[in-house]
């Protein structure tokens, strides 16, 4: 507590960002420190778990102190500490969790294990305090493509998810084959602006009628085959057209499925989350589709779409309010399920 404000710390280390934030009363962000390793991993063409873990360990005390300093608070004033316990890279999750547990024990603070995707969804509340469950959430990231019914702050129902590649993964692979390198998403997005989205007709995969699941590997393979075929014929491939057409195919499906989910649930709004929610085409086309139906679209600022501590603090705040605390024996869960796995993060009574 400080000046009557309830303070939550959020710690995130599930992939390649070491991030810690301090949130007041579940609405006012006091600090949000993010130490990104993106430049380090670019040399390897993707995140190398062992290297990510090594850097998390070195970074975390600095990020922790900076988060307190920028918030202008002391650790004694923090009311609870939330940490991402899964899903994510095991070695990376371990660093945030091991550190958080030591800090929680040393400072005698309540500890909260947070589901990373719950964090991404809760990022929407950082800028839209009026947003309250129930609502529909769409998580689009390098590891996840989930349509989620947010029934309560701590109650989720997965309506659909990817059966193969996550959307961000498909972007990364396409970026690699057209020679853009890592991280693929923003690079494909940028190049797509210079290309014709209707130049090449890539496959849109809708799966069974009424299915809210996704499959991006077919579209991705279509891109790879197209490039091989064209090269064999001796044609030069327009990388911008490939990027634009691939993006068009993916976003068509994303928008259609999001609208189907709105139809099915009847909610008056959609909140999107995750690193790929930064994608300009996804943002603008979802916005148009939502406007057309007269429903609200919530989109976090880009800084809250990619991994950050603020979203973990927000999720932790709502877990604490509903009494979901972890024990000091909290473990990490690299493949944590969102519907069934949440209870495992809480202390056994």
């Amino acid at each position: 507590m400080k000046n009557g404000m309830h303070l939550t710390m959020g710690i995130e280390s599930s992939c390649d960002e070491t991030a810690i934030a301090v949130l007041a009363d579940g609405r006012q962000l006091l600090s949000n420190v993010i130490s990104s390793q993106i430049e380090i991993h670019t040399a390897y063409g993707g995140v190398v778990p062992e290297i990510a873990s090594r850097h998390h360990l070195n970074n975390i005390p600095f990020v922790f102190q900076q988060a307190l300093d920028e918030a202008g608070v002391t650790l004694e004033e923090i009311d609870e500490i939330g940490v991402t316990a899964g899903p994510g890279l095991a070695g990376a999750l371990l660093m945030g969790t091991a550190f958080a547990k030591a800090v929680a024990m040393a400072a005698q603070k309540p500890l909260i294990g947070v589901h990373h995707i719950q964090g991404h969804i809760m990022a929407n509340l950082l800028e839209h305090p009026d947003l309250k469950p129930p609502f529909l959430a769409f998580v689009l990231s390098g590891g996840h493509t989930h349509l989620v019914e947010v029934k309560g702050y701590n109650e989720f129902k997965i309506l659909g998810c990817t059966r193969d590649d996550a959307i961000g993964e498909a972007y990364d692979k396409v970026a690699r084959v057209i020679g853009l390198g890592y991280p693929g998403g923003p690079k494909v997005d940028r190049l797509a602006k210079e290309g014709d989205p209707h130049a090449i007709e890539f496959k849109r995969v809708y799966l069974e009628k009424d299915s809210l699941d996704f499959s991006f590997s077919g579209t991705k393979t279509g891109v790879i085959n197209y490039i091989h075929n064209e090269e064999q014929k001796g044609h030069t491939v327009s990388r911008a057209d490939v990027a634009a057409s691939f993006q068009q195919a993916v976003v068509d499906v994303v928008v259609d499925k999001a609208m189907m989910a709105l139809d099915r649930t009847g909610y008056g709004g959609l909140a999107i989350a995750g690193g790929v929610a930064c994608n300009s085409s996804i943002r603008s086309r979802l916005q148009q589709a939502c406007d057309r139906r007269g429903v609200t679209l919530w989109i976090p600022s880009p800084i809250f779409c990619t991994d950050n501590g603020a979203m973990i603090a927000m999720a932790a705040y709502h877990k604490a309010r509903e009494g979901h605390f972890a024990g000091l024996d909290l473990d990490v869960y690299p493949g944590l399920n969102m519907e069934t796995g949440l209870a495992g993060l809480d202390r056994a009574e």
Partner: peptide, 8 residues
């Protein structure tokens, strides 16, 4: 990581 947290 544990030592760092405690020491800090």
């Amino acid at each position: 990581a544990t030592a760092k947290g405690l020491a800090q």
